[in-house]
Design a protein around this nucleic acid. Sequence first.
DNA 1: ACCCGATAGCATCACACCGACGAGAAGGCG
DNA 2: CGCCTTCTCGTCGGTGTGATGCTATCGGGT
Lengths: 232, 232
Amino acid sequence: MRGNLFAVAVDLVILTVRRDQLNVLLVRRGERPYESHWALPGGFVRADEDLGDTAARELAAQTGAATQGAVQGHLEQLSGYAAPDRDPRGRVLSMGYLALLPDVPDPEPTGGPSAAFLPVEDVYGLAFDHDTILADGVERARAKLEYTTLAAAFCPPEFTVTDLRRVYEAVWRTEIDPRNFQRKVTSTPGFLIPTATRVTGGRGRPPQLFRRGPATALHPPMLREPVSVAHA
Amino acid sequence: MRGNLFAVAVDLVILTVRRDQLNVLLVRRGERPYESHWALPGGFVRADEDLGDTAARELAAQTGAATQGAVQGHLEQLSGYAAPDRDPRGRVLSMGYLALLPDVPDPEPTGGPSAAFLPVEDVYGLAFDHDTILADGVERARAKLEYTTLAAAFCPPEFTVTDLRRVYEAVWRTEIDPRNFQRKVTSTPGFLIPTATRVTGGRGRPPQLFRRGPATALHPPMLREPVSVAHA
DNA sequence: ACCCGATAGCATCACACCGACGAGAAGGCG
DNA sequence: CGCCTTCTCGTCGGTGTGATGCTATCGGGT
């Protein structure tokens, strides 16, 4: 069997919506290279693991096993990164993974390296090629909100239409008309399941609470921009 | 640096449309394991290569450097596959790549292992986990025809609207109304650029010849099925 | 008690797009 | 010439969406 040997790592783009902003979980590196730089959380694939196993293990380690039930969240593979010089220690291939989580109370794992959710707009200068991986992950998340029901992965088990709309607005950095948005999501079969309860205590008319429905796709999709594609 | 070491390979899903059928390029293995089984073409990543370099090199090797100009074709990364037992020789991670080509004259490379385009419908029992990689590649291609102009990658430099429609019909295994299809593709700015020439010699009214335009996205997308998404 | 602002949710209208379909344009062939 | 085939343009109705108005129902201030 020819070919060089690689160390294989998994790097996670863990996104959540916090205070109406898209945030990514970063860790501060405690060792060289890139010591004290921010980086995506990740780790090497163990002997008995497939890539998804490693990603799930790292996700649980970073966010606490509680949120890892994955009923609510979402985890999917992004791309592979293997430029010859991407890691000065040697040949390392990294598989990017994208995780979407509800806004968890706070992500500081005990004892580990310092970790924090930071708004993606403020992030740059990450270790290795993590800026690229992060950009790919954010773009994937933005694209998937268009044609899937994945936005609900950012929400707690029960949520309102307004909660869901704020997810879209935060991820896309746009404003969406509340009335048209409500028509769209409530008229898509299987997207939202109404619960018996309503929310009280806020201002205004109490909203209906929903749970995620079984639908995964949005047909037709919700388009970010009525963008004119190209010039003839 | 912890972690096991992997051999890293690239496996190609090379698709083309031939005789109104979606075909994939396969090679017959000449060595163990899976000797004499069909497999996706591929190879190991060399010391100075990034993943895309390896994919481009293998694509050129399989199809001849002629078609490899890639102006016409298309090459993109699929997923990574690294199940611990996917290769009996040891730990191997394979990056899938998807290539779309016009129907080349014939792909038999000199001296190499026997290679052939086979209709994807007839393919099963490939070596390793290549059935999975192939399925992922075909599904990616089908999905991308919906919201990109990538179908033109299956066509020669100049082609008619009917050629393009047959690509969609072959990849999706559906029938499309020629009149509505023509309206859709010709009214999308930047998708098709008319040339001065027309085709003569066939039956019926001579069609207009087009080249690919600069557009890459289709807004709104062309939907495969008015599928009812889910049950409430 | 009353009004007011705020949010939720429903209704309406115009427009764009699409599927179904008709019909004309422009070639080959007997 | 008639007839077939295929390309191309048009029409009609249904659906989905953006823009917008209106109503429902709460908290809070006076």
